[in-house]
Structure formats: C-alpha cells, structure tokens
C-alpha cells in the first residue's frame, strides 16, 4: 500500500512540475490564435496575427538576418566541432586545460563572453555586423557540436579505422569515407542543436551587432518589442520561434537516439 501511495505522490510531483513548465508557454501559444488578441476574452480562432507579422518589414528583415547568422555559424561550427571531437577522442589522454577550454563556452556567462568580444572587436577597430555575430556564435556552437559527436564516439568501433588503414587508405580518405559517414547522425544532430542555439541567442548578438539597425536579429527584435509591452504580434512571433526550436530539437533527438542533447 505504501508503495502505491509513493507512486501517486510521484505522479503528483510530475504533474505539478510539468504544469509549471508548460502552462506559461501554452497560454502564450493559445493567445497567439485569439482573434481579439487580448487575454480578457476568447473571441475566436484566427491566424491574423501571423498574417500581420508578414507585413512587418522590420520583423522580416530580422528573420532574414537570423537565418544568415544561424546557417553560416552552424556550418562553421559543425565542421570545426566535428574535427575537434574526432581529434580529442583519438588522442584520448587530454590535459585538464584542454578539456576546460572545450567545456568553457557552454558554461561561461553570456554577458561575459559578449562584453569580452565587444571589447576585442572595438579595440581592433573591427567593424561589427552580421559577420561578427556569426563568428561569435561559432564559439559556443562548436562546443555543443563537439559534445554531441564525442558522445557518439564513445561507442565508436575504432577497429574499422585500422581496417581502413590496413587496406591502404590515407588518413584523409579514412576520415572522409569511414569515420564521417558513421558519425553522420550525430553530426547532423549536433548541427541542428547549434542551429537552434544560434536562432535563439540574444545577448552575444546584441553586443556584437554593432550600431544601427541593419544587423538586428530576431531575438534582438523580440527584446525591443517586449520592452514596449504585450502585443498579439509578439505572441505569434514567439510561437513561431518556439516551433522552430521544438522541430529542430525533435529531429536532433530522433537522429541521435540514446542521448539527449546536454546529457
């Protein structure tokens, strides 16, 4: 009997925690489809707030910028992160400092990295814009790609690499035709993760975008809108942004069975 009560208590805890996690987001998503746009009354289902997003030139421009930054930083981070992961796992015995440098981008407070990059770019007189946001995003993105690929490499059968070498393949051929294909699901999973991180990243982009509105990204646009107040348009935009993350994460999870991102 005691066990059954314990189990019920556990279900109750789970119910409460999941309610806490999901109610705020659900309210937001729900209101984005409310025709009246106000939380006071449900006046009917409508997608008109999504339509009005499409007419907002600022939002479209910001979305375009975000896409440019996210795609280019993801490609760069996926290449660098994968090579790093393979190198680190072949070497096996890595010093503490190396592990720290690889791990640091995931734990360092965004604000610190953001001002550090801003200081460096300005002292070097580098003109800031989408390119500086992109190279900055690669820093944390490559760390996440590396973590996902390394997790996959833990169960990697290195004898196939030896077999490939024995059969006369060079290191590059082995990497390209043996290692990379086996790792592909993890590489794509890591890339998708990097993509969502970049799409959602605000603080580093905010500091490294430079002056003016030309290189504003979607999170920067959302931040500016939120400071104005709650509007149905933000609800709709927020819903789209959440959907992008959820889809990318679900795909990443599907490809990379057995390991949750971050685990």
């Amino acid at each position: 009997m005691a066990d059954r009560n314990t189990f019920r208590l556990m279900l109750l805890i789970l119910g409460l925690v999941f309610a806490f996690l999901y109610i705020p987001i659900s309210v937001l998503v729900g209101l984005s489809f409310n025709e009246g746009g106000l939380p006071t009354a449900w006046t009917g289902f409508s997608v008109k707030w999504y339509g009005s997003l499409l007419e907002d030139a600022d939002i479209l421009k910001a979305a375009g910028n975000t896409l440019i930054v996210a795609v280019s930083s993801t490609i760069l981070a996926t290449i660098l992160g994968t090579l790093l992961a393979v190198g680190v796992e072949i070497r096996r015995r890595n010093g503490k400092w190396l592990e720290t440098i690889i791990f640091a981008p995931m734990i360092i407070p965004d604000i610190v990295l953001a001002i550090a990059l801003l200081s460096m770019f300005s002292l070097l007189n580098i003109k800031m814009g989408l390119h500086t946001i992109t190279v900055s995003h690669v820093v944390f993105n490559l760390a996440f790609v590396c973590a996902v690929v390394r997790a996959r490499l833990k169960s990697f059968d290195w004898s196939i690499v030896e077999a490939s070498a024995d059969l006369g393949a060079s290191t590059m051929i082995t990497l390209y035709r043996v290692v990379i294909p086996v790792l592909m699901p993890a590489i794509v999973a890591g890339g998708l993760l990097a993509f969502t991180l970049s799409v959602d990243e605000f603080i580093i982009a905010f500091f490294t975008a430079g002056a003016g509105r030309s290189s504003i990204t979607l999170p920067m646009q959302i931040f500016a809108m939120i400071r104005f107040g709650v509007t149905p348009e933000i609800n709709a935009l927020a819903t789209i942004v959440i959907s992008v993350s959820v889809v990318a994460l679900a795909l990443s999870q599907r490809l990379n069975k057995g390991g949750l991102p971050g685990q």
């Binding site: 705020p24 987001i25 939380p39 006071t40 959602d200 605000f202 959440i242 994460l249």
Partner: peptide, 27 residues
C-alpha cells in the same frame, strides 16, 4: 525529453511568457 524541451526554446520567449501571465491585463 519533455522536461528538458522548454530549456531549448528561446530564453526571451520563456521570460516573456511570464509577462503575459502576470501583467495587469494578464491571465
């Protein structure tokens, strides 16, 4: 997976959700 899912969605949006919930005309 579902416990961690919100963590990977936009930080600003998750924070904004509380403004929607708690503001003077909020839910």
């Amino acid at each position: 997976f579902f416990a961690v899912l919100p963590f990977w969605s936009n930080y600003l949006v998750r924070t904004y959700a509380w403004i929607v919930l708690l503001n003077r005309e909020g839910l």
